[in-house]
């Protein structure tokens, strides 16, 4: 009775003739979200073409590329940009190296207890925000922090372990590791364990099996993880602020500074557009080199 009623309501709200549009309707929220992002980008693109008048603190009416010229002319932006791209590349590499064995053990372990521990350890950081985690590292790595206290007890240190570039990268790896594991784990799950066993039964050493069987078959997960980790690291704001000591800015910090510290929305928009273009171009390079097919987008996989 209840099911009949629900079916009648469904037929009233979404008649059978409309079924062919169902998939399109399901896509509407995603399309709306993308449109909001595109509209925001378009607004920033337009704003980036106006120059700030520091006598009135209004942006001018005329269209100009002056903000982009300023970005090109100021070495600060190039330094910060280079630091961001290099940092994102290092963080991506280190994160993938750490995430793959974690995901592999989590999927392949025969011990339910080990899997539970690894899963809990994976999800726990998601309940703690990025900023709180970064402050946690200050408590552990600070001059009077936990680690230096231990060093002090054995007559070493204190060592300066925070407020530098490596500590920013360290914080980013710790922040992004769970994302990478979550993206790699399904790819490892999809690899039939018997294929690995077949490789080994044919005489391949585990390292050879790993290199020629496991790694290529886990490629979709690795590519997805690399894309997510790289873009999140490249656009991160909080870690450079909290662990960088103010002299290790990433490009997102430069966007913030332009918008909020010097009230120049035109320059801030231009820096943001440059960041979006670079992130998109680098993501495109990753997909071109590794192939979009690795993410399951090729026709053969349909």
């Amino acid at each position: 009775m209840l099911l009949d009623t629900l079916e009648a309501v469904r037929a009233l709200l979404w008649p059978r003739t409309m079924r062919r549009y169902s998939s399109a309707v399901l896509l509407l929220p995603a399309i709306a979200l993308v449109l909001v992002l595109v509209a925001g980008l378009a607004w920033m693109g337009e704003a980036s073409l106006h120059l700030l008048d520091t006598e009135t603190f209004d942006t001018g009416e005329d269209y100009t590329a002056a903000n982009y010229r300023e970005i090109g002319a100021q070495s600060t932006y190039w330094i910060v940009l280079g630091r961001s791209v290099l940092g994102a590349a290092i963080v991506t590499l280190v994160t993938l190296i750490l995430a793959f064995p974690y995901a592999y053990v989590m999927v392949r372990t025969a011990s339910a207890w080990t899997r539970k521990v690894l899963l809990v350890s994976l999800f726990l950081p998601f309940f703690i925000g990025q900023v709180v985690r970064a402050y946690g590292w200050l408590i552990i790595l600070g001059r009077e922090g936990l680690l230096n206290t231990v060093f002090g007890a054995v007559g070493l240190g204190p060592y300066k372990m925070i407020y530098n570039y490596p500590s920013v990268l360290f914080g980013l790896v710790q922040y992004l590791l769970p994302f990478a594991v979550l993206l790699i784990a399904p790819a490892v799950t999809a690899i039939d364990e018997e294929i690995e066993l077949a490789s080994e039964s044919l005489g391949a050493h585990w390292l050879r099996t790993f290199r020629h069987v496991t790694l290529p078959m886990a490629r979709p997960g690795l590519v997805a993880a690399a894309l997510v980790v790289f873009t999140l690291a490249l656009t991160d704001y909080a870690m450079p602020v909290i662990l960088g000591g103010g002299t290790n800015d990433f490009i997102a910090n430069a966007v913030y500074d332009a918008f909020f510290r010097i009230s120049d929305s035109g320059l801030g928009s231009a820096v943001a557009i440059v960041l979006v273009l670079i992130a998109t171009a680098l993501a495109a390079v990753i997909l071109t080199v590794l192939g979009a097919g690795t993410l399951g987008f090729s026709d053969e996989r349909r």
Binding site: Q74, S75, V80, I262, D264
Partner: peptide
């Protein structure tokens, strides 16, 4: 200060981020 804030900020950043 208001008129020169942007320039001073840019120079300070150029030194400190360099």
């Amino acid at each position: 200060q208001v008129e020169n804030e942007k320039e001073w900020f840019g120079k300070f950043k150029a030194i400190m981020q360099g």
